[in-house]
């Protein structure tokens, strides 16, 4: 590469008028050729820009873990089940509190019959008390006729 051409390209370069091919020519020249003293000050520019292109992203790309996504799904299912069980339970309990007229009638009848049974048993107890008196009479009779 003739020097005059390089000097011409340099002028265009600093005016922002070179294309990518021109810039490659300049880069190749300053990175590889023996650069004369009066152009030496440009050398670090091209070396520096080339060095900057060598820099690498050293970390791993950090995305949300797939396990976390699975866990989230699992949580959604758990919440859905919980809500469902509340709904089912709620419906069940609310229905058990609401009695049909027939059921109410049956319940009332049950209460009545329970009362009747209670009365019966009380009277029966009175009867047995009286029976003890009869027993006393028979023991007294035994004493007399011994």
């Amino acid at each position: 590469m003739e020097l005059a051409k390089i000097e011409q390209l340099l002028v265009a370069y600093f005016e922002g008028e070179t294309n990518l091919q021109d810039e490659k020519t300049l880069r190749d020249y300053f990175l590889n050729e023996n650069v004369p003293t009066h152009l030496l000050q440009y050398k670090p520019i091209f070396i520096g820009l080339e060095a900057a292109r060598k820099e690498r992203f050293q970390k791993e790309i950090d995305l949300p873990k797939p396990e976390t996504a699975a866990f989230t799904n699992w949580k959604y299912i758990a919440v859905a089940l919980l809500v469902l069980s509340f709904l089912v339970g709620g419906v069940y309990f609310s229905q058990s509190n609401k009695l049909t007229p027939e059921e109410k009638e049956a319940l009332a009848a049950f209460e009545e019959s329970k009362k009747a049974m209670l009365l019966l048993s009380q009277n029966l107890n009175k009867g047995t008390e009286r029976l003890t008196l009869v027993n006393q009479f028979s023991t007294a009779k035994n004493k007399v006729f011994e």
Partner: peptide
Amino acid sequence: NLEANEGVAMVLKIL
């Protein structure tokens, strides 16, 4: 005496 490496560091600093 400006060495190439120092020149490069300087360019990067200027940037």
